[in-house]
Design a protein around this nucleic acid. Structure first.
Lengths: 334, 334
DNA sequence: AAGCTCTATGCAATCGATTGCATTCCCACT
DNA sequence: AGTGGGAATGCAATCGATTGCATAGAGCTT
């Protein structure tokens, strides 16, 4: 602000340099102090628009996610927002509802706002946006759900080992007939967790006939209900169910109850994500905890780092952890 | 963009006017079409920074809330975001953790980003920010939690009548000894709901001795536990509990269970908000539904309207609704 | 046909900060 | 004392869109 410069008795350019930490070493410390004092005095706040216009940077990142209302996302967004504001950035939020059109529109809107980068938390397996971001010269990191394209940085939980731990737990309890209510195959997490399930049961030497897999049409309670029904129909002998996520597990619980089966006595059940309040269900749900807030934080950190070193491609995998509660127990004898 | 102007064979100013709906009637329709075609062709996206710089508007609003992780807020934010993007605006999110310092810092950051207005979802009863926003000439609307100052537009649910319906329900079931686990008095919802409770029990002619009130230190499960314990100590005769919100109700449920009391047989329990998943508790919680997404939408609409007519002060009260599930039943006879 | 009006468009200043280059001034070195 | 070098600061262009004012035509009136 030129007022500040005038008040401090210097040229506007000097004021600008004095106020900017990365250029303030060009200016004598005495002047810097004078300028800062004047800025303070006048209650100066820099005009971000002007800065963006000149520097072509907005200190803003776009966060695209399917639906904030899905309990999975708030902690992620929270984590993102935390490290972003710490660094003087802010997050622009956009919900896509997993709708390609909305997604493209939101993406364009964010582009118009000159976001410096994107964090994508949407789940489709291969993603046109990823390419477009690159074409537009914008950085992008994926969180929680990856693409199959390995050229892009992804921050995710170690789903495979989480599923592995869950299967280990069930097998250790004595279960042999397992079912997996898989997430949709069009989402990366769906296939990754399924793969994890397959490899884990293989490790325990379970036969293919011992395991049933039903694909859910989405990560929703209703889809979980449908899948659980399908499993009960086709493989009534299963004693343990591993759900693709907690929402699916809730659906499964409904159907078990509806069929007069009790959990964990008749059927053990494990969820995924450790969503808020799954410990309040009855029975409290055994599930795989994913450190969502930390996922968000890492994603933001990674994006910020890439803003400096664009070529850097790193992916971060955060450990997951099995949280044993009361929805798992040894199978009934006999 | 001057490229567009060149491509359409017109002056940049003409292009600008043609592309802007509010000025495009100054330009012949033929030219408008030509310019739009050129813009389309070149994939032109306006530079928001330049526009903001010139117009001193950012088409951006700041949303301040305590903690996105609180299940209350995602639907509100979702609603806000919905109508904002519809109108070409976007939301900047900031979490304050109910900490005055963080809140002030976030507010300043948002100001620096030239937000056109603020939506405040933070709960403290009187709020320095409200004044400051006005001083800075920024519009502001409060959502869900009001101030005592009536000069500011507030969008909220009709808490009093929700509480009233809850009390009616309990009394109709035959309950006479009621307790209210009130939200903190420093939050407006805390006092409003308490007031609602008082007036409702008065309406039913219940004596002061019939009702117990315990103030919770916050809208949290832990605070609910503490308050419920206090009530069981001081007034073990209560047969029905009205919680200040669902989180408090969850805490109450814990303590009831811990004391070997069953819900609803021994004690009926009603929550507030109809948070996601309270229907999955056992028992599924009877609660007062507040239309949070609609609250958010209304808040955004109201803010947008005030951006046009700054003097307009309207507050919106949305109806609430009692959702009866299985945590309420007639009191035990005797 | 001259003059007037009105519409469509061009011109150029402007918003506020950043930054390459030029300039000034001081000091040290020989 | 003169010169070279560096540190500190000033100068002015620049980012891209908006907008008040000026201007060029076209059409109408008398």
């Amino acid at each position: 602000m030129s007022d500040v410069a005038r008040a401090a008795g210097v040229h506007q350019a000097t004021a600008s340099r004095a106020l900017n930490p990365s250029t303030s070493d060009l200016i004598s410390t005495a002047t810097v102090r004078r300028v800062q004092a004047a800025a303070e005095e006048l209650g100066y706040t820099p005009n971000t628009a002007a800065r963006s216009l000149r520097t072509n940077q907005s200190y803003t990142v776009g966060v695209l996610l399917p639906d904030l209302t899905n309990p999975l996302f708030p902690p992620i967004v929270r984590g993102i927002e935390e490290v972003l504001t710490e660094q003087g950035y802010t997050a622009l939020l956009a919900n896509t509802d997993n709708d390609e059109k909305r997604e493209a529109a939101q993406f364009a809107a964010l582009l118009g706002r000159q976001v410096d980068g994107f964090i994508l938390a949407t789940g489709l397996r291969d993603h046109p946006l990823v390419e477009r971001a690159q074409a537009e010269g914008r950085q992008l990191v994926l969180v929680n759900r990856g693409t199959d394209v390995p050229r892009f940085p992804v921050v995710s939980g170690d789903d495979a080992s989480g599923i592995g731990a869950a299967v280990d737990h069930l097998v250790a309890l004595g279960h042999r007939k397992l079912a997996h209510l898989a997430g949709p195959h069009r989402m990366s997490t769906g296939v990754i967790r399924l793969r994890g399930f397959r490899s884990a049961v293989g490790r325990h030497g379970l036969a293919a006939a011992d395991t049933t897999v039903a694909e859910c049409s989405g990560y929703t309670v209703a889809a979980g209900e449908a899948a659980m029904r399908a499993v009960l129909d086709s493989a009534p002998e299963v004693t343990a169910v591993l759900a693709g996520n907690d929402l699916i597990a809730v659906g499964a619980l409904h159907v078990l109850r509806e069929h007069g089966l009790s959990c964990p006595e008749d059927v053990s059940l494990i969820g995924f994500n450790d969503m808020r309040f799954v410990d309040e269900l009855s029975p409290p749900l055994t599930t795989v905890r994913v450190p969502h807030a930390e996922l968000g934080r890492e994603a933001a950190r990674l994006l910020l780092r890439r803003l400096d070193e664009p070529e850097l491609v790193t992916s971060v995998v955060l450990p997951t952890e099995l949280v044993v509660r009361e929805s798992t127990a040894p199978p009934r004898v006999g």
